[in-house]
Design a protein around this nucleic acid. Structure first.
Lengths: 196, 196, 196, 196
DNA sequence: CATGAATGAGCTTTCATTCAT
DNA sequence: CATGAATGAAAGCTCATTCAT
């Protein structure tokens, strides 16, 4: 597993992970087979193991990438000046067509983390990062006087993330849901929760 | 699949489903094998197929049962006089130790429903039932003047269910979360959302 | 792995072991594959695992059977009245055409036992049995005055078994060896060792 | 397989063989993989094939080296003045801790030679060499009047080598064997066999 | 010479399912 | 109804070997 050209090696690893994520979205963490991943990334079964030492390792890495992507999205969104509309826009994006794959992957991560400690740990770490970002945001809002100063930033962040996660599930429960209206209500929920 | 004694037959079916659910909780929808289910319900593999025509059928039935149980729980909870504290108590229970299995199963159902239309349909139907119950509750609250009359009961119910689902995920993201405090905040979220 | 008809089940197990031993003789313990064994015993790969829980288990059982057969042969041979010629006839048989398979298997057992503790233990137990038989024989010879009474029966038995094992290797080292003459010499070795 | 610097090339070949022998002792002829050998000799898989054209060739060469080492040991031992004690000391060494690896390798060679003609031939040639050495020794003993002149030196040598091989197997059959006593008995066997 | 990437057949084992009794 | 035998495809993974650089 040493590499002559580490950059090329890392590039191929990422290609494989991208292919694997497509497979996982299509068939699930457990439903996708290593040979599916090989076919999707056009490599031989033997070669896969030059890049990952087991399917488990692929799964872990894919989980990390998916969660890192989520954190990255949060970071960008929370850069905006206005707390609440930033949060809402995250929920909004979660409903977009493109995000469907990410949502499925996230669900697999949740389901897997209930039985697979390695995945659970990855989820915990990513969650702590994201909650940290949101908490920071809440603090900023409090400083600006836009957020109720009685709220503990960390717990508030957890609850807000929970609301965002729950919103993601809404469209799985009800595909015909009136998205605009439910978004409006979610906005209301968040605003009423946070405003002083 | 002919049944000599329909009652006995149905009893055995339920025993098998109960065993299957234990397996699914332990190992996941995809991770549990038919022979696990056979071992857990102490029947032979041949006999399993006298009661269910495929693993898929077991999965569907188990999904239905799990969702029916959730709906039943909601029904009981919503029987109480006070809207908000009823909802909160549901969320509270969701955090209890006993509910861990149910939560894992629900996650599997969500993940599975993204790829399996049969499971998706079961989830939709169950969700509609539950949302109907909550909507009815919201309406009652509005009649009592305890709930903001501007809120559409159905959308409100969807959002409340989303919040409850999201709350369930919170403890998977952060096992060390301060449960009491986050519950208190969730109560706040719901109260501020609903009160006129 | 429970059985409806334990006798039939055991019968099939023995058929499989017989087939496996043919494979092991042909290709070695490590060189024979489970699918070779399936082909030789005309069963499907899945079915093999109704009878043995792993290839390792097949290997162990085959080792036990081969060593039990050796012990059985010793027992029969040592039933004769004359100690020394009985021992020699065992060595004689070891050179026969038929015994070639058994010798190869025994070599595999020896080689395997150097790395596989389970096989090592089987070898030790079988050896203790055989040495016990030979020791008993030596004692009888001592009682008859035909064997030197100064010899410790157990150590003597070990050494005699070693000589028999070594004789088996002779024809592997030198396939063109003058069998008759070398047997005569071996007889001489044993006689001179044992006679008072 | 062209060699730029034949001396360096040969040196590397020997390094690889030494590494391969460590692997073979550890895991057996069939159990050791080419990548084990690469790891042990710290070269790349591609490079391995610059020095040996196949695993089979490595196996053959390792077999030759192991047998040459055995012959060398015999040569040194048989240089001593006294026939019998020389032979005994060879058996003695065979029991020593250090020789365990060599014994395992020899067993693998025996087992392999039953199925692999190339290895069989190497074994035959090495055996002929060793037997020649011993036969020469026997002749010397006969000239000295210390060995029975009726014995055919070649057959005697074969039998003596067989006894030495058998002695090596004794400690595999019975790891708890009283080594000192069994050695004493082996000495007795050889002395009584050879003395006029 | 040397590297590590790449191959594809093959390994042991498990799976959902069907069959004979 | 119930059993356990039987199936054969597919799983994850390793192997000896070859290729491109």
């Amino acid at each position: 597993m040493r590499k002559l050209d580490p950059i090329k090696h890392e590039g191929k690893r990422q290609e494989i992970i991208a292919a694997a994520m497509r497979c996982f979205i299509r068939d699930g963490f457990r439903g996708a087979s290593t040979s599916d991943i090989c076919a999707e990334s056009r490599i031989s079964p033997g070669n896969l193991y030059h890049y990952f030492e087991s399917k488990e390792a692929i799964l872990k890495t894919a989980g990390e990438v998916a969660l890192a992507a989520a954190a990255f999205r949060f970071r960008r969104i929370l850069e905006g000046p206005d707390v609440i509309s930033a949060l809402i826009s995250e929920i909004e994006q979660a409903k977009s067509r493109i995000e469907r794959g990410g949502r499925l992957l996230l669900l697999d991560i949740f389901a897997e983390s209930g039985r697979n400690p390695a995945i659970a740990q990855i989820l915990h770490e990513a969650s702590r990062t994201i909650i940290g970002l949101i908490a920071e945001f809440v603090r900023r809002g409090q400083a600006q006087g836009k957020v109720n100063k009685d709220l503990d930033p960390d717990v508030t962040a957890s609850v807000l993330l929970g609301i965002a996660d729950g919103a993601r599930l809404m469209s799985m429960r009800e595909p015909k849901l009136d998205t605009a209206k439910s978004l409006e209500y979610l906005k209301l929920v968040v605003i009423r929760f946070l405003t002083p």
